[in-house]
């Protein structure tokens, strides 16, 4: 005590006290005040980053606040699943307005996609991007995968073709091929209904059904083409084409050879 009381008039005492008081108040505030986690600071950064990307690449069609214009629909409440599907498959940002925006090599990395999704979600929540357990076909039995095939034929093949090879729709639109589509994007497309596709909500196709369909697609696309080369795999159209090329064409050549051969007298 003597040590302190002796020096209370010291020139440095007041500044030191002030520092001490600031320290106490600071520490005290940090204990009492609402917790601001590091994640939150990251999120706000992510939103900022997303906003920057959005303003550059999306706002000219979707509006500065995602309200939509004549060129693009409103993005309010579309949800992160929709943003992830559109941007991660390269459909958005679109190169030009056309009957249907095709999938391309994605322009943005996964982090940038998440940033965009985070920013767009600030206007209103929608369908969230799925967790892996929702779409991964891990652990499905053979019967469940076969059932996925029945579900696919009942709900999807009318547009996407029998094993998802794609099909034509009116006016230059089309149901794209699913041969290269990632599992998560199949799930997101079902839930969000991008472009011409109707929404298949959880009430219609449960997550388990969705997993079975995805499992069926993976299985159907990884099995060998039984019976030989697919020859374009356009069903009877390519079969008819080849029967004229190989069948009639080949046999006509051989017939010419046979007819040219005279008989040799012995």
């Amino acid at each position: 005590m003597n040590f302190l009381s002796k020096r209370r008039r010291h020139a440095a005492a007041r500044p030191l006290l002030l520092l001490l008081a600031l320290l106490v108040v600071g520490v005290g505030y940090s204990v009492v005040s609402p917790q601001q986690t590091s994640a939150d600071t990251d999120m706000s950064q992510q939103v900022e980053e997303g906003k920057a990307l959005f303003n550059v690449s999306c706002s000219s069609c979707h509006g500065l606040n995602g309200e939509g214009t004549t060129q693009g629909p409103s993005l309010i409440g579309v949800g992160t699943a929709s943003v992830n599907f559109q941007v991660a498959t390269g459909r958005m940002p679109a190169a030009r307005p056309e009957a249907q925006i095709p999938a391309r090599t994605p322009l943005y990395s996964a982090e940038q996609v998440n940033a965009l999704a985070a920013y767009i979600s600030t206007w209103g929540a929608g369908v969230e991007s799925p967790k892996e357990s929702q779409y991964s076909p891990e652990g499905l039995s053979a019967e469940e995968i076969a059932r996925g095939g029945a579900l696919f034929r009942a709900n999807c093949s009318a547009c996407h073709g029998i094993v998802g090879g794609g099909g034509a729709l009116p006016g230059g639109k089309y149901a794209p091929s699913l041969l290269e589509t990632a599992n998560i994007h199949v799930w997101e497309a079902m839930r969000t209904g991008p472009q011409q596709m109707p929404v298949f909500s959880k009430d219609v196709i449960s997550d388990d059904d969705a997993r079975e369909i995805i499992g069926y697609l993976n299985e159907a696309h990884s099995q060998p083409t039984f019976g030989g080369l697919g020859m374009g795999e356009n069903g009877p159209v390519s079969e008819g084409f080849w029967v004229f090329i190989f069948g009639i064409g080949g046999l006509a050549l051989i017939a010419t050879w046979i007819a040219k051969k005279g008989a040799r007298a012995r």
Binding site: R153, S157, G161, I162, G166, A175, P236, E239, G240, F244
Partner: peptide, 10 residues
């Protein structure tokens, strides 16, 4: 059920 790409033989 129906599938896109249904065709008859040629």
């Amino acid at each position: 059920k129906i599938t896109a790409g249904s065709q008859p033989d040629w």
